[in-house]
Design a protein around this nucleic acid. Sequence first.
DNA 1: AAAAGGACCTGGTGGC
DNA 2: TGCCACCAGGTCCTTT
Length: 271
Amino acid sequence: MPELPEVEVIKRGLSTPLVGQTIHQVWVREARLRWPVAEQLPTLLAGQQIKQISRRGKYLLLHCTQGHLLIHLGMSGSLRLLDHDAPFRKHEHIEFLLAQQQRLRFHDPRRFGAVLWTSEPFQQHPLLVHLGPEPLEAAFNGEYLYQQAQKHRRTLKSYIMDSHVVVGVGNIYANEALFLAALQPQRRLHTLQYSDYQRLTASIRQVLTAAIDQGGTTLRDFTDGTGQPGNFQPALQVYGRAGKACERCGHQIHQQRLHQRATYFCPHCQL
DNA sequence: AAAAGGACCTGGTGGC
DNA sequence: TGCCACCAGGTCCTTT
């Protein structure tokens, strides 16, 4: 479900209601997520205050009094802030009881998501320490993407979706960014020029920024922390548009499988 | 050693 | 209606 824009939208939506709140109680109804939820989690978290919320790639980080809660939504995860009387839905695996009788619930049908605790500096967590730069920060630029590419001969799409290269670019936005940059997803890295990487970094930034501004992309069920869906879906140029007309040139959008993922592109615009 | 494939899950959809 | 195959926004681990 969530790529970088969706996680960013959730972060922004939950910051105001959550920062400063105390976690009074935690209920783990299903511990079998991507990694088992720590048995001690309820004990560890009880009484801790949420000091700050941030994001690293697709990880949402709740910085608490004595450590950090790392939340990854995987493919189908979501977080909802609910009133005290909200009935449990299926797949609501974890509940955080807050003051004012509000509760934050982690919902994830496919259980590819993760909820992890660390009391160490979070940057050094094994899942975060090897991540590439944030695409919206200055370290991610044409020079960087070009230099990294010299180490590989793989396809362009798998390259930009690799979180060790750059974080946050999932299948939807990889397709969209490649369309914006007029580059075919299956191109091999060594066939590209320096200027292609400059254009591509700009396109990645552009599509992620626009998606954040629109509140993210809702295909089936994405909502921010308060239940609002995103509005970026109508702006998608290629993703999910197989057989439809390219909005730039009118040719049909093609679909093919690349590395097991649905891949969309305009064979006329993208070279 | 890089790159592709498999695995982890549930639910929705479309075909027969 | 039922059954089945296939698809889905992620990413770590294993195999080639």
